[in-house]
Amino acid sequence: MAATEIVAVLDAGPLIHLDELGRLNLLNDFKELLVPQVVLDEALKHRPGLRQAELLNLEIISEPSLLPAGLLKLADDLALHAGERAALAVLKERGGQFLLSDDAAARTVALAVGFQTHGTIGLILRSHRRGMIAKAEALQLLRELPARTTLHLRKSFLDSILATVASEKS
């Protein structure tokens, strides 16, 4: 399946969590995958062996531009981290559509200024929808999130997601 025309910018969360699952390749389904250097540095702090070579369309942005004033105010209000600010700056600068993040505050800011945001769980399910992985594998990856990744979820919440996905017609 050909990659979509979407330009996506990575925050550290999905980068770390998909690497923990050994499935960074699920990020290869975008036209362009951009990551600020500061985000990559953060991910490498957590995952020194991060398999970034699996990311075929990855472009590392060394020096993102500064955030516009309105966005800077929102970023300040929600005390966004340097990596999250850089990811938002790259989205603006490069005309991206998606912020890929598991950080609630960063996603809130991105949504407020009109970007779509998606996280690790959405990316796993999208990969199934787009034929990259079978439903059984998507379910298995979701089941393994608590044991294999640092993405924290309430057990009952994850169970409800698993039930929703399992009940979907393939």
Binding site: I124, R126, R129, L153
Partner: peptide, 16 residues
């Protein structure tokens, strides 16, 4: 907030 965003993501992942 986190769970609301994830539920939206599940919907997008399955039906986007």
């Amino acid at each position: 907030l986190q769970e609301k965003q994830i539920l939206e993501d599940v919907e997008w992942g399955l039906h986007g």
